[in-house]
Simulated assay, not measured.
Amino acid sequence: MATATEKPSETSSAKMFGGYNKRYKHWSPTLGCSMAFSVYFPPSSSHKFPVLYWLSGLTCTDENFIIKSGAQRAASAEGVALVAPDTSPRGLNVEGEADSWDFGVGAGFYLNAKEGKWKNWQMYDYVVKELPKVLSENFEQLDTSRASISGHSMGGHGALTIYLKNLDKYKSASAFAPIANPTNCPWGLKAFSNYLGNNKSDWEEYDATCLIGKYNKITAPILIDQGEDDKFLQEQLLPHKFEEACKSVGAPLVLRMQPGYDHSYYFIATFIDDHIKHHAEVLKSP
Protein backbone atom coordinates (compact mmCIF):
# COMPACT_ATOMS: atom_id res chain seq x y z
CA MET A 1 0.00 0.00 0.00
CA ALA A 2 1.25 3.48 -0.86
CA THR A 3 2.04 5.96 1.86
CA ALA A 4 1.19 9.63 2.32
CA THR A 5 4.63 10.70 1.14
CA GLU A 6 4.90 8.47 -1.92
CA LYS A 7 5.22 10.38 -5.17
CA PRO A 8 2.09 10.27 -7.35
CA SER A 9 2.51 8.08 -10.40
CA GLU A 10 1.92 9.61 -13.82
CA THR A 11 -0.61 7.62 -15.87
CA SER A 12 -0.95 9.78 -18.99
CA SER A 13 0.52 12.83 -20.68
CA ALA A 14 -0.53 14.89 -23.72
CA LYS A 15 0.89 18.14 -25.07
CA MET A 16 -1.59 21.00 -25.53
CA PHE A 17 -1.00 24.71 -26.28
CA GLY A 18 2.71 24.28 -25.52
CA GLY A 19 2.09 22.76 -22.08
CA TYR A 20 1.05 19.31 -20.91
CA ASN A 21 -2.06 17.64 -19.58
CA LYS A 22 -0.88 15.03 -17.09
CA ARG A 23 -2.90 12.57 -15.04
CA TYR A 24 -1.72 11.03 -11.78
CA LYS A 25 -2.75 8.35 -9.32
CA HIS A 26 -1.89 8.32 -5.62
CA TRP A 27 -2.98 6.74 -2.39
CA SER A 28 -5.15 9.08 -0.30
CA PRO A 29 -4.95 8.52 3.47
CA THR A 30 -7.78 11.05 3.86
CA LEU A 31 -10.20 9.01 1.72
CA GLY A 32 -8.75 5.56 2.27
CA CYS A 33 -8.48 4.72 -1.41
CA SER A 34 -6.47 5.36 -4.54
CA MET A 35 -7.36 8.66 -6.21
CA ALA A 36 -6.71 10.25 -9.59
CA PHE A 37 -6.15 13.91 -10.35
CA SER A 38 -5.29 15.83 -13.51
CA VAL A 39 -2.96 18.79 -13.93
CA TYR A 40 -2.43 21.10 -16.88
CA PHE A 41 1.09 22.52 -16.74
CA PRO A 42 1.56 25.62 -18.94
CA PRO A 43 4.71 25.90 -21.09
CA SER A 44 7.92 25.92 -19.07
CA SER A 45 8.77 29.15 -17.31
CA SER A 46 11.47 30.50 -15.02
CA HIS A 47 8.71 31.30 -12.54
CA LYS A 48 6.50 28.91 -10.60
CA PHE A 49 2.91 28.66 -11.77
CA PRO A 50 0.00 29.72 -9.60
CA VAL A 51 -2.73 27.09 -9.30
CA LEU A 52 -6.40 27.16 -10.23
CA TYR A 53 -8.31 24.23 -8.73
CA TRP A 54 -11.34 23.03 -10.66
CA LEU A 55 -14.06 21.04 -8.91
CA SER A 56 -16.36 19.08 -11.20
CA GLY A 57 -20.04 18.23 -10.85
CA LEU A 58 -22.20 15.18 -10.28
CA THR A 59 -21.16 11.99 -12.15
CA CYS A 60 -17.88 13.58 -13.27
CA THR A 61 -14.26 12.50 -12.77
CA ASP A 62 -11.06 14.53 -12.89
CA GLU A 63 -11.04 14.19 -16.68
CA ASN A 64 -14.29 15.94 -17.69
CA PHE A 65 -12.94 19.46 -17.32
CA ILE A 66 -9.56 18.64 -18.84
CA ILE A 67 -11.11 17.00 -21.92
CA LYS A 68 -14.16 19.19 -22.54
CA SER A 69 -13.60 22.74 -21.28
CA GLY A 70 -10.85 24.06 -23.57
CA ALA A 71 -9.47 25.94 -20.57
CA GLN A 72 -5.89 25.11 -21.50
CA ARG A 73 -5.64 27.78 -24.20
CA ALA A 74 -6.19 30.62 -21.71
CA ALA A 75 -4.28 28.84 -18.94
CA SER A 76 -1.27 28.52 -21.26
CA ALA A 77 -1.43 32.19 -22.23
CA GLU A 78 -1.84 33.35 -18.63
CA GLY A 79 0.69 30.96 -17.11
CA VAL A 80 -1.77 29.37 -14.68
CA ALA A 81 -1.73 25.65 -13.84
CA LEU A 82 -5.06 23.82 -13.72
CA VAL A 83 -5.64 21.12 -11.11
CA ALA A 84 -8.71 18.89 -11.32
CA PRO A 85 -9.35 16.32 -8.56
CA ASP A 86 -11.91 13.53 -8.78
CA THR A 87 -15.37 14.09 -7.29
CA SER A 88 -15.54 11.32 -4.67
CA PRO A 89 -13.76 8.25 -3.28
CA ARG A 90 -13.90 5.22 -5.56
CA GLY A 91 -13.48 1.49 -5.19
CA LEU A 92 -14.65 1.26 -1.58
CA ASN A 93 -17.77 -0.79 -2.41
CA VAL A 94 -19.95 0.82 0.24
CA GLU A 95 -23.49 -0.53 0.11
CA GLY A 96 -25.68 1.88 -1.87
CA GLU A 97 -22.78 3.99 -3.19
CA ALA A 98 -23.85 3.51 -6.82
CA ASP A 99 -27.63 3.33 -6.40
CA SER A 100 -28.20 6.81 -7.87
CA TRP A 101 -26.26 9.29 -9.97
CA ASP A 102 -26.68 12.19 -7.52
CA PHE A 103 -25.29 10.53 -4.40
CA GLY A 104 -22.35 8.32 -3.45
CA VAL A 105 -19.75 7.59 -6.14
CA GLY A 106 -19.16 10.69 -8.27
CA ALA A 107 -21.11 12.81 -5.79
CA GLY A 108 -18.86 13.72 -2.88
CA PHE A 109 -20.30 17.25 -2.48
CA TYR A 110 -16.91 18.48 -1.19
CA LEU A 111 -17.85 17.96 2.45
CA ASN A 112 -16.61 15.83 5.35
CA ALA A 113 -19.26 13.18 5.97
CA LYS A 114 -20.25 12.46 9.57
CA GLU A 115 -22.48 9.42 9.12
CA GLY A 116 -20.44 6.26 9.75
CA LYS A 117 -21.30 4.42 6.56
CA TRP A 118 -19.88 7.30 4.55
CA LYS A 119 -16.84 7.94 6.76
CA ASN A 120 -14.49 7.85 3.76
CA TRP A 121 -16.35 10.69 2.03
CA GLN A 122 -13.98 13.42 3.25
CA MET A 123 -13.67 15.43 0.05
CA TYR A 124 -13.43 18.77 1.86
CA ASP A 125 -10.26 17.71 3.66
CA TYR A 126 -8.93 16.07 0.52
CA VAL A 127 -9.29 19.24 -1.57
CA VAL A 128 -8.32 21.77 1.11
CA LYS A 129 -5.55 19.89 2.93
CA GLU A 130 -4.27 16.72 1.31
CA LEU A 131 -4.13 17.58 -2.39
CA PRO A 132 -2.30 20.93 -1.98
CA LYS A 133 0.26 19.14 0.21
CA VAL A 134 0.75 16.43 -2.43
CA LEU A 135 1.23 19.11 -5.08
CA SER A 136 3.65 21.25 -3.09
CA GLU A 137 5.79 18.25 -2.12
CA ASN A 138 5.98 16.70 -5.60
CA PHE A 139 5.77 19.46 -8.22
CA GLU A 140 8.36 22.16 -7.76
CA GLN A 141 7.00 24.11 -10.73
CA LEU A 142 3.74 24.82 -8.85
CA ASP A 143 3.31 27.63 -6.33
CA THR A 144 0.43 26.35 -4.20
CA SER A 145 0.61 29.47 -2.00
CA ARG A 146 -0.95 31.33 -4.92
CA ALA A 147 -4.19 29.46 -5.49
CA SER A 148 -7.74 30.13 -6.63
CA ILE A 149 -10.73 27.82 -6.98
CA SER A 150 -13.58 27.31 -9.45
CA GLY A 151 -16.08 24.63 -10.37
CA HIS A 152 -19.35 23.58 -11.98
CA SER A 153 -22.69 22.63 -10.42
CA MET A 154 -21.85 20.44 -7.39
CA GLY A 155 -18.27 21.63 -7.95
CA GLY A 156 -19.43 25.23 -8.04
CA HIS A 157 -20.99 24.63 -4.64
CA GLY A 158 -17.66 23.16 -3.52
CA ALA A 159 -15.64 26.06 -4.87
CA LEU A 160 -17.80 28.71 -3.20
CA THR A 161 -18.00 27.02 0.21
CA ILE A 162 -14.31 26.07 0.30
CA TYR A 163 -13.32 29.60 -0.70
CA LEU A 164 -15.52 31.28 1.89
CA LYS A 165 -14.19 29.06 4.67
CA ASN A 166 -10.54 29.42 3.60
CA LEU A 167 -9.98 33.00 2.50
CA ASP A 168 -6.37 32.66 3.64
CA LYS A 169 -5.76 29.80 1.18
CA TYR A 170 -7.49 31.02 -2.00
CA LYS A 171 -7.19 34.40 -3.65
CA SER A 172 -10.40 34.23 -5.70
CA ALA A 173 -13.38 32.04 -6.56
CA SER A 174 -15.73 31.55 -9.48
CA ALA A 175 -18.40 29.08 -10.51
CA PHE A 176 -20.54 27.86 -13.37
CA ALA A 177 -24.14 27.05 -12.45
CA PRO A 178 -23.31 26.31 -8.79
CA ILE A 179 -25.66 24.59 -6.37
CA ALA A 180 -25.76 27.88 -4.50
CA ASN A 181 -28.24 27.09 -1.71
CA PRO A 182 -28.10 23.31 -1.20
CA THR A 183 -30.00 23.33 2.10
CA ASN A 184 -33.05 24.34 0.05
CA CYS A 185 -32.83 22.06 -2.99
CA PRO A 186 -33.45 18.32 -3.58
CA TRP A 187 -29.81 17.49 -4.43
CA GLY A 188 -28.59 19.17 -1.27
CA LEU A 189 -31.27 17.71 0.99
CA LYS A 190 -30.47 14.19 -0.20
CA ALA A 191 -26.71 14.59 0.13
CA PHE A 192 -26.65 16.47 3.41
CA SER A 193 -29.17 14.26 5.24
CA ASN A 194 -27.25 11.12 4.25
CA TYR A 195 -23.69 12.39 4.67
CA LEU A 196 -24.18 14.73 7.62
CA GLY A 197 -27.27 13.51 9.49
CA ASN A 198 -30.22 15.60 10.59
CA ASN A 199 -28.50 18.53 12.31
CA LYS A 200 -29.35 21.48 10.07
CA SER A 201 -26.52 23.60 11.50
CA ASP A 202 -24.08 21.04 10.06
CA TRP A 203 -25.72 21.49 6.67
CA GLU A 204 -25.31 25.27 6.78
CA GLU A 205 -21.52 24.85 7.08
CA TYR A 206 -21.60 23.64 3.46
CA ASP A 207 -24.08 26.15 2.01
CA ALA A 208 -22.59 29.25 0.35
CA THR A 209 -25.80 31.23 0.86
CA CYS A 210 -25.57 30.60 4.60
CA LEU A 211 -21.79 31.08 4.79
CA ILE A 212 -21.50 34.42 3.02
CA GLY A 213 -22.76 36.22 6.11
CA LYS A 214 -20.09 34.59 8.28
CA TYR A 215 -17.14 34.90 5.92
CA ASN A 216 -17.73 38.06 3.96
CA LYS A 217 -14.29 39.70 4.06
CA ILE A 218 -13.82 39.14 0.34
CA THR A 219 -11.57 41.39 -1.71
CA ALA A 220 -11.84 39.85 -5.19
CA PRO A 221 -15.39 39.69 -6.61
CA ILE A 222 -16.87 36.22 -6.95
CA LEU A 223 -17.72 35.49 -10.59
CA ILE A 224 -20.68 33.24 -11.42
CA ASP A 225 -21.99 32.36 -14.86
CA GLN A 226 -25.44 30.78 -15.07
CA GLY A 227 -27.25 29.66 -18.21
CA GLU A 228 -30.83 30.88 -18.41
CA ASP A 229 -31.89 27.70 -20.21
CA ASP A 230 -30.36 25.43 -17.56
CA LYS A 231 -33.05 22.87 -16.69
CA PHE A 232 -31.79 22.72 -13.10
CA LEU A 233 -31.87 26.49 -12.52
CA GLN A 234 -35.17 26.94 -10.70
CA GLU A 235 -35.29 23.80 -8.55
CA GLN A 236 -31.67 22.93 -7.81
CA LEU A 237 -29.26 25.82 -8.32
CA LEU A 238 -30.91 28.92 -6.82
CA PRO A 239 -28.18 31.48 -7.67
CA HIS A 240 -30.47 34.40 -6.85
CA LYS A 241 -30.65 33.23 -3.23
CA PHE A 242 -26.87 33.56 -3.09
CA GLU A 243 -27.06 36.93 -4.84
CA GLU A 244 -29.53 38.20 -2.24
CA ALA A 245 -27.29 36.97 0.58
CA CYS A 246 -24.25 38.71 -0.96
CA LYS A 247 -26.16 41.98 -1.29
CA SER A 248 -27.29 41.81 2.33
CA VAL A 249 -23.69 41.80 3.57
CA GLY A 250 -22.07 43.84 0.80
CA ALA A 251 -20.04 40.94 -0.58
CA PRO A 252 -18.77 41.59 -4.13
CA LEU A 253 -20.46 39.30 -6.66
CA VAL A 254 -20.71 39.31 -10.44
CA LEU A 255 -23.63 37.05 -11.42
CA ARG A 256 -23.97 36.82 -15.20
CA MET A 257 -27.19 35.24 -16.49
CA GLN A 258 -26.41 33.91 -19.96
CA PRO A 259 -29.43 33.70 -22.32
CA GLY A 260 -29.86 30.41 -24.21
CA TYR A 261 -27.16 28.46 -22.39
CA ASP A 262 -27.77 25.17 -20.58
CA HIS A 263 -25.92 23.18 -17.88
CA SER A 264 -23.40 21.50 -20.20
CA TYR A 265 -19.71 21.82 -20.99
CA TYR A 266 -20.70 23.70 -24.17
CA PHE A 267 -21.73 26.47 -21.78
CA ILE A 268 -18.55 26.14 -19.73
CA ALA A 269 -16.30 26.16 -22.80
CA THR A 270 -17.97 29.37 -24.01
CA PHE A 271 -17.09 31.40 -20.92
CA ILE A 272 -14.11 29.60 -19.39
CA ASP A 273 -11.59 32.11 -20.78
CA ASP A 274 -13.27 34.86 -18.76
CA HIS A 275 -12.87 32.80 -15.61
CA ILE A 276 -9.21 31.99 -16.26
CA LYS A 277 -8.48 35.67 -16.82
CA HIS A 278 -10.52 36.63 -13.74
CA HIS A 279 -8.33 34.40 -11.58
CA ALA A 280 -5.07 35.18 -13.36
CA GLU A 281 -5.41 38.90 -12.59
CA VAL A 282 -5.65 38.16 -8.89
CA LEU A 283 -3.09 35.33 -8.83
CA LYS A 284 -0.45 37.37 -10.60
CA SER A 285 -0.99 40.62 -8.71
CA PRO A 286 1.65 41.59 -6.12
Rank of each mutant, 00 (worst) to 15 (best):
152 H>Q: 08
184 N>Y: 11
191 A>W: 08
170 Y>I: 09
71 A>N: 00
137 E>V: 15
191 A>F: 07
171 K>I: 09
156 G>S: 02
165 K>H: 12
161 T>I: 12
92 L>H: 03
93 N>W: 05
136 S>R: 15
159 A>K: 05
187 W>G: 11
75 A>F: 09
125 D>Y: 10
140 E>S: 15
178 P>N: 10
177 A>F: 09
128 V>Y: 12
76 S>Y: 00
194 N>T: 10
113 A>L: 04
129 K>F: 13
117 K>F: 02
174 S>Q: 02
145 S>E: 14
185 C>N: 12
195 Y>D: 07
120 N>M: 10
101 W>K: 10
95 E>V: 10
118 W>K: 07
137 E>N: 15
147 A>P: 13
151 G>N: 04
130 E>W: 02
149 I>D: 08
176 F>Q: 05
161 T>W: 12
100 S>Q: 04
117 K>T: 08
150 S>H: 09
184 N>C: 12
102 D>M: 05
136 S>Y: 14
93 N>E: 04
158 G>D: 06
72 Q>N: 03
115 E>W: 07
87 T>G: 01
192 F>T: 04
134 V>P: 13
112 N>Y: 08
186 P>I: 02
122 Q>E: 09
113 A>G: 06
140 E>N: 15
131 L>K: 05
170 Y>D: 04
135 L>K: 14
153 S>R: 09
167 L>N: 03
173 A>H: 05
102 D>K: 04
150 S>M: 12
117 K>G: 02
164 L>Q: 02
161 T>G: 06
69 S>F: 06
124 Y>F: 13
179 I>C: 10
171 K>A: 10
127 V>Q: 07
182 P>A: 07
69 S>N: 01
95 E>F: 05
157 H>V: 13
93 N>L: 02
77 A>K: 13
105 V>Y: 05
91 G>M: 01
187 W>D: 11
74 A>E: 09
189 L>E: 15
129 K>Y: 13
107 A>W: 04
